[in-house]
Amino acid sequence: MTAHPLVVDFLIPVLKIAAVILYPLVMVIVMIWMERRVVALIQGRLGPNRVGFEGILQPAADAFKLFFKEDIIPRQADRFLFNLSPVLVLVSSLLAFCFIPLGESFRIKGYTLTLWVAESPVGLLLVLGLSSIGVFGIIFGGWASNSKYPLMGALRSVVQILSYEIPLGMTVLTVIFFSRSIDLVAIVNHQKDARIWFGFLLPVSFVVFWISGIAETNRAPFDLPEAESELVAGYHTEYSGMKFAFFYIAEYAHMVLVSSLVVILFFGGWLPPFPNVAALAFLHRIPGFLWYLAKIMFFLYLYVWIRATLPRYRFDALIKLAWKWLIPLSALNLVAVAVLRYVL
């Protein structure tokens, strides 16, 4: 018995669209809380623990505060671009989530429910492309603020993001050599069939991808463009209230996106670990979605852990790191993997 066409054609897509907007937003809320708690715990203190159970309502308090702040637009600012840029940055981060698969599909009453909004044979390319639209938001924000500090901050952010896109792309290519497809679902399935995750097969690719991912999201130790203790305060200096909240949310959403990509490309997406060990077969009973969530949480924790530990790179060294080290390394890696793949 197939499901009612109204459900299949209307209700489920609507629910999926709601999910693709809510999922990153919920993750952002969790991320804000986790960042403050984990950084505090690393520093020997407790962090927010009064607002709600163990401080879980703290992001709500922050959002509430930002909601009521006065929305200031500088007099000389370009109003259209000024208002457009936070929207661009947020939408680009959220849109890419349409193509991220969250778990294996399962059958309910003869209907196969897929845990992704859309599956495309070029899913990976679309995700990378959509998330790059955010660069425009940054440029518009810096330019429209009509002030030298945000503009300089915006230019630096853009140079940083563009430079680190290259090793990102090249390491992804090494994964594609093995998976022979840029469909994200197919990549995960390939890791299932190969019974080894690409992160272990291609460790150099994983590390370079991870470092580039941190630089892409403007996080420590690559956060000079927006660091508080430096001179240039970054492209979002002139923003206040909800527009600033948009930039803030977009940054965290982008982090969740990069973590999702790392997990899907290199760590098996929704697959449970140790598929070859018969004694651990019970792990397969836990739904794939939960495995995916657990892995993402680990990488988000890694983001915060790295932020609390490492000092900040100066901007010129940041760019030097990309061009002198990561790009040659990823190029070499690409050639080596290509040769080994087709020779062995």
Binding site: V39, Q43, G44, R45, A220, P221, D223, T309, P311, R312
Partner: peptide
């Protein structure tokens, strides 16, 4: 000094 350069945890360790 460490906090200015970005290593925020050292601030707390030093003060502890």
């Amino acid at each position: 000094m460490a906090n200015d350069i970005g290593a925020m945890s050292v601030l707390l360790y030093g003060f502890e």
